[in-house]
Every structure is written in C-alpha cells, then in structure tokens.
C-alpha cells in the first residue's frame, strides 16, 4: 500500500514549479539585470549580474525613501501586533470564562469585525476628530481595531483548553485579576500567541489599503513600492529589486514559522 505514485509526483512537481516558482524566479532574474535588458521584460538570464548596484540604487532612490519606509513599517507592525495581541487576549479570557450579559453582544461584534468592510471615509472623519489622522499612532490604532476579531477567535478557542482549576488556585493564593491574567494565563498562551503574531505581522506588513487611506504622508513599504512603480516606469530592474526586498521578510517568517502560520490560518479560519 505504501507504493508512491512516481508519475503523478513528477507531473505535480513540474506543474507547480512552472505555475508557482516561475514568477518568483522572474522577480529574482529581473532584479539582477541592467536597465536595458530589464526593459525587454523577457524571462532570460541576466547578461551581467548587477544585484549589488541595483540594491544600492533602490535604497538610495528618492533620498533613502526605502529605509524610511522600512523603519515606518517595522514600527507599525511591531506596535500594532503587540497591541492587538494583548487587548484581544484580555477580551478572549473574560469572554471565555464569564458568560454574562455582554457575552452575546461581544460575540456579535467579533463576527461583525470579520465580515463588515470598514467604512473608510467615516474612519478618516473620526481620526480627524480625535486629531490622529495622518499620524502613525492613528494608523496603529486602526490596524489594532481591524485585527482584534481574528485574534479573539484564535485565543478564545485556546483558553477553553486551559483548566479553570488553575485560575482558582491562583485566586486562592491571593492573585487579583491582573496578576491572574498576566502572570498565569498570558504565559500559557505562548504557542497560540506566536501563531497570532506571525500571521498578523505578515498581514500588517503587507497591508496597502489602510496606510493608503490613513497615513498618506509617511511612506510604508507597500506604498513606497506602489509609488515607485508609478515613477520609475523605465527602470524595471530597480522595480523588481524593490519587489524582491519586500518579499524577503515574509519569506523569512515562512522559513522559520511554516507550521505556526499553517495552523493559525486554518484553525482561525475554520472556527470563524
């Protein structure tokens, strides 16, 4: 029974290589070409490898815009993901442990957060009202608000597997709610927190729409890439070097956290 199906395997490997790997190979090849050859747009081996000069050119373009964008995106991703994880864990904890009057309303709001498309212009209006439009803190809070639902669902399912006896023991030992949550429960969530952090970091890092609307002044990596494509229309080698640089952070995440991402995306999805 354990005979492997060789012909099917080889066909699958070939087809997947053509369909899924050729576009990435294309990015890599284009990023290494000189300007004239890149303009041909064909799938060919670079006549001369110019990875380093292209890299330097992209980084220096428009007064080191890419460096600023990377710094902005890093700040955005780290703070937004940290914020949504802590806030969502607090909600999920009480939501799972204490079925009360608010229970139904909160479950409804969590599901609404997954389905309802955000109302962009009214959000801008609110942000202007509180003086946060076009600022990094404003965008961070927006990302937190939009990411909460996913995290709450993920955490609630996990907290259900933590025995209540643990809470009771901590309470008898004199722990208040804050201590109970941050010293007992939160550390136990470690594995699911890693999952949430990885999935949400990729989401926030790749986000284009929210920075476009809510932070028009400062560049993030996705916005920079988009604007770059509009301005450097003749320099495809630099454009693809930019794409390559933006693909590397998710690739690193993927190499290190493959299983986490897979479990997070499927479990979160199936429960949603």
């Amino acid at each position: 029974m354990s005979r492997r199906n060789w012909p099917l395997s080889i066909a699958a490997i070939l087809v997947s290589a053509v369909v899924f790997l050729v576009p990435f190979a294309f990015i890599l090849l284009m990023a290494g070409k000189d300007r004239a050859q890149a303009a041909l747009l064909d799938f060919s081996w670079p006549a001369q490898f110019r990875f380093v000069p292209n890299f330097v050119d992209v980084v220096e373009a428009r007064d080191y815009m890419l460096i600023i964008a990377y710094i902005n995106s890093t700040i955005l991703t780290v703070t937004a993901v940290a914020g949504m994880v802590v806030l969502a864990a607090m909600v999920a904890f009480v939501l799972q442990r204490r079925p009360g009057r608010l229970h139904g309303l909160i479950n409804f709001l969590v599901l609404a957060g997954l389905i309802v498309p955000p109302a962009v212009v009214p959000t801008i209006w609110v942000l202007k009202g509180v003086g946060l439009f076009g600022t990094m803190p404003g965008l961070i809070l927006v990302e937190i608000a939009f990411g909460l639902s996913f995290c709450v669902l993920l955490f609630r399912a996990f907290i259900a597997t933590i025995p209540r006896e643990l809470d009771e023991a901590a309470v008898i030992d004199g722990a208040g709610p804050l201590r109970l949550f941050f010293r007992v429960i939160f550390p136990l969530l470690r594995s699911v927190i890693i999952t949430a952090v990885v999935v949400q970091s990729v989401t926030v890092f790749n986000d284009f729409v929210n920075p476009l609307y809510f932070l028009p002044g400062d560049p993030t990596v996705q916005l920079t890439l988009y604007n770059f494509a509009g301005q450097y229309t003749a320099e495809y080698n630099l454009l693809f070097m930019n794409i390559l640089l933006i693909t590397i952070p998710p690739l690193i995440m993927f190499l290190f956290f493959n299983r986490r991402i897979v479990s997070g995306m499927t479990s979160g999805a199936v429960k949603g």
């Binding site: 009480v94 309802v116 109302a119 009214p122 959000t123 609110v126 809070l141 709450v152 709610p177």
Partner: peptide
Amino acid sequence: RRSPYPQWFYLPAGVVYGVLFVVPTFAS
C-alpha cells in the same frame, strides 16, 4: 466576592474597536 474575570478587561479593546470600527460603520 469580586469576580476574577472583571468586565473592564473588555474596555481597552472596546474603546479602540468602538471608536475606529463601530462608530464609523454607523456614521457611514
């Protein structure tokens, strides 16, 4: 006895979510 699961844990997330998601949705 005060519950070890206080409802104010909802508050920080609720404020962010309410102000930046619920209010704009109704305002729309």
